[in-house]
Simulated assay, not measured.
Amino acid sequence: MQESLALDVIGLRVSRETLGRLQLFAELFRKWSRTINLIAASTQNDMWTRHIADSAQIFALSPEPKRWVDLGSGGGFPGVITAILLAETGAGWVHLVESNHKKASFLRVALSETGARGSVHACRIEEAHQQIQHCDAISARALAMLDLLFDFAAPWAERNPDLRCFFHKGRDYQSEVDKAHGGWSFDLLQHQSAIEADSVILEIAHLARKL
């Protein structure tokens, strides 16, 4: 089965119920994609590996139930995938931040119909910290340069010194890391992507703006 094989690539085993939730999400995604541009059309045929399994890598790195903020959730990657995987644990929550109201509507339907553990905040990322007071972890995928992501994450980092951030990055990630060091102090773990040879997931801890 394509779906199970895609998850096997990242070493993630899920229950039949969770796999069913992911399959339902994929069906909803294809349906809504006919009228809303959720991802590049050229990548839809490889959605299970390119998007679902790729997104699930974040949960595989940090599977303990926690309060997540997913920035720029778009078509639900990785936020909805994390929320679906959390449903099996019965704990944790994902706050999905998406300013585009059509995409936010899709995200709400996806969460509701799959029984995922999440909610949608249809607001600008810069305003989200006013609605979401606390979180344990932040995720973002294909959203912005690293130093801008740090700007977005800063309000939560100031409230929680144990905050962790998980950011998908492509082959040029090192130049972004070097630039970010100019204005920020942080601890960094680089996790090689099991999906894209040139990609990584950057795990950030102890984020603080340099004075």
Results as ranks from 00 to 15, higher is better:
residue 48 W to N: 11
residue 48 W to G: 11
residue 48 W to S: 09
residue 50 R to D: 08
residue 50 R to P: 02
residue 51 H to R: 04
residue 52 I to T: 04
residue 54 D to M: 09
residue 55 S to M: 10
residue 56 A to L: 05
residue 56 A to G: 07
residue 57 Q to T: 06
residue 58 I to R: 07
residue 58 I to L: 14
residue 59 F to Q: 02
residue 60 A to G: 05
residue 62 S to C: 09
residue 63 P to L: 02
residue 64 E to L: 04
residue 67 R to G: 04
residue 69 V to P: 04
residue 70 D to V: 09
residue 70 D to E: 01
residue 72 G to T: 08
residue 74 G to Q: 07
residue 74 G to L: 02
residue 75 G to R: 11
residue 75 G to A: 11
residue 76 G to R: 02
residue 77 F to E: 09
residue 80 V to R: 07
residue 80 V to L: 05
residue 80 V to C: 06
residue 81 I to W: 05
residue 81 I to L: 08
residue 81 I to N: 03
residue 82 T to W: 03
residue 85 L to C: 01
residue 87 A to V: 08
residue 88 E to S: 12
residue 89 T to K: 15
residue 91 A to D: 14
residue 93 W to C: 01
residue 93 W to D: 02
residue 96 L to G: 04
residue 98 E to W: 03
residue 99 S to I: 05
residue 99 S to N: 14
residue 100 N to T: 13
residue 101 H to E: 01
residue 102 K to Y: 01
residue 102 K to G: 04
residue 104 A to E: 00
residue 104 A to N: 03
residue 106 F to D: 01
residue 107 L to W: 03
residue 108 R to H: 01
residue 110 A to K: 13
residue 111 L to Y: 03
residue 112 S to A: 15
residue 117 R to M: 14
residue 118 G to C: 09
residue 118 G to Q: 08
residue 118 G to T: 06
residue 118 G to H: 05
residue 119 S to G: 08
residue 119 S to H: 06
residue 120 V to Q: 07
residue 120 V to T: 12
residue 121 H to Y: 15
residue 122 A to C: 14
residue 122 A to E: 08
residue 124 R to T: 10
residue 127 E to R: 07
residue 127 E to K: 10
residue 128 A to E: 09
residue 128 A to S: 15
residue 128 A to M: 11
residue 128 A to P: 10
residue 129 H to E: 11
residue 130 Q to R: 15
residue 130 Q to D: 10
residue 131 Q to Y: 12
residue 134 H to L: 15
residue 136 D to H: 14
residue 136 D to M: 10
residue 137 A to Q: 12
residue 138 I to W: 10
residue 138 I to Q: 12
residue 140 A to T: 08
residue 141 R to M: 01
residue 142 A to N: 04
residue 143 L to Y: 10
residue 143 L to N: 05
residue 144 A to W: 09
residue 144 A to C: 13
residue 148 L to T: 15
residue 149 L to Y: 06
residue 149 L to P: 11
residue 149 L to G: 07
residue 149 L to C: 15
residue 150 F to N: 10
residue 151 D to S: 15
residue 152 F to M: 13
residue 152 F to P: 05
residue 153 A to H: 12
residue 154 A to V: 12
residue 154 A to H: 14
residue 155 P to F: 14
residue 156 W to P: 13
residue 157 A to L: 11
residue 157 A to R: 13
residue 159 R to L: 06
residue 162 D to C: 01
residue 162 D to I: 02
residue 163 L to C: 10
residue 163 L to K: 12
residue 163 L to A: 10
residue 163 L to S: 11
residue 164 R to M: 03
residue 164 R to I: 13
residue 164 R to N: 05
residue 167 F to W: 11
residue 167 F to R: 07
residue 168 H to S: 12
residue 169 K to C: 04
residue 170 G to A: 05
residue 170 G to Y: 00
residue 170 G to P: 04
residue 171 R to I: 00
residue 172 D to Y: 00
residue 173 Y to N: 00
residue 173 Y to D: 00
residue 173 Y to G: 01
residue 174 Q to M: 12
residue 174 Q to L: 09
residue 175 S to E: 14
residue 176 E to Q: 11
residue 177 V to M: 03
residue 178 D to A: 12
residue 179 K to V: 03
residue 179 K to S: 11
residue 181 H to Y: 01
residue 181 H to T: 08
residue 182 G to Y: 03
